[in-house]
Write a protein that binds this DNA or RNA. Structure first.
Lengths: 241, 241
DNA sequence: GTCTATAGCTTGATAGAC
DNA sequence: GTCTATCAAGCTATAGAC
């Protein structure tokens, strides 16, 4: 589902007449974003200089300030660009599933499959830009300084919709339990999308980080069982710090 | 179990005679490590300057080069310092459990409880340094540039021991399935130890990132159920990329 | 061991020509 | 829109006094 066909590389841009004049500035802006996305995803915000971005994009540093005012603005623009597509895709997928689930009604497996498939699809078939973006999100999610705030700002609305639907599948579940269970899923998802190669080493080559098809299938079943275990028995813990 | 009593703050250092002369240089080295750990955990390797570390540690920048040669050496020293304690603790805990499990024999819940408790304990009761360290590990685990390599170097031996014991509990499970299941657990663990505040926002204050007591309990049950679901039905996926 | 002083570079950002 | 030129500030690292 949701086959992504938007090319992420400027080289494959489609349907624009080659002679068009206005195309230039749009392409410049996009290629700056592509270069920044690539570099930020690998080395983080502070690990990348404006000059490196400019060099990889084939433009001058002054141009980056012209388009994005400051380095921080460039980062935000990178983050924003794909967040909307990503989120709309996921929300559309779970809504579609909720309206027409299988004969037995909604299941956690079906719901998670719908919710997780889009990011994995984009990462697999959307071109290198989407892989870079996924890694960037993974790193941001783990960032103690601004990770919580940034992730919340861009992704919480979509996740709240998911949680509404989980409540329909598990009507007796306590809200706290659902949130903590989701937190476990979120960690698994972002680590996997980061494709750090950790699993490859740990497993001695038995598993490959890039095998997102398997990753998605495993995650759906792991998370569904985890949610059930956490939500079906009462497990609200008292915080005795 | 495993009550940590090693103070992380220099102020609380115990048992050393105040007049001792040799203590000074050790304390200097340690306070540089403490400052670096704090800052690296918040802003990453490139987000921190030697000068900032020196200022926070109350020493000169030249001294940092004296002890650690270069910025990179400082980072590695920070990472190494607590890795050994952390890993030894975890391995000791699961070995202890394996030798004397409850009446019904080993369970996944018991095993994960033993394996996860030490990092949570240290983070809760080991002083601020351990919290910084946990956040540093969380960030490193998500780092695409050197995360996979660094994590493997410091943590894989302990995890291989865990996987051996999991195989004893689930003797029929395919090795691939175990590794993929562990990967899901690993993501959940590091995200949680990072305490980014994401969950607090998402849940509207219902859950708190700092409530590690609950986090650990949830994770044990979530992961145990996830492992069972993934390993008990044959789910080896073909990678059709 | 610890500091001062500084070399030698790179950084983010801008002013202004075209 | 795009580039050249440049600034002030900050960076890592080191040499050498004490």
């Amino acid at each position: 589902m949701t086959p992504p066909d938007l090319p992420a590389t400027p080289a494959a841009r489609r349907g624009r007449p080659p002679k068009a004049r206005a195309a230039t500035s749009v392409d410049t802006r996009e290629s700056i974003l592509d270069a920044a996305e690539d570099l930020f995803s690998k080395h983080g915000f502070y690990g990348v200089t404006i000059r490196e971005v400019a060099r990889e994009a084939g433009v001058d540093t002054a141009l980056i300030h012209y388009y994005f005012t400051a380095k921080r603005g460039l980062f935000e623009a990178v983050f924003l660009r794909r967040a909307e597509v990503w989120n709309n895709d996921r929300v559309a997928a779970i809504n579609r599933y909720a309206e027409a689930p299988g004969p037995g009604g909604m299941t956690l497996e079906g719901l998670f499959e719908a919710f997780l498939r889009p990011p994995f699809e984009w990462s697999l078939k959307g071109g290198p830009g989407w892989k870079h973006y996924a890694a960037l999100v993974a790193q941001t999610n783990a960032n103690p300084a601004f990770g919580g705030e940034t992730m919340a700002r861009y992704f919480d609305p979509a996740i709240h919709r998911l949680i509404e639907l989980i409540k329909q599948v598990l009507p007796q579940a306590a809200e706290v339990d659902i949130y903590w269970a989701y937190h476990n899923l979120s960690g698994a998802l972002t680590l996997t999308l980061g494709e750090t190669g950790r699993l490859d080493r740990l497993s001695g080559g038995l598993c490959r980080s890039g095998d997102l098809e398997s990753a998605c299938a495993y995650m759906v079943r792991f998370a569904a069982a985890g949610f059930r275990a956490v939500c079906e028995t009462s497990a609200v813990k008292v915080d005795h710090r």
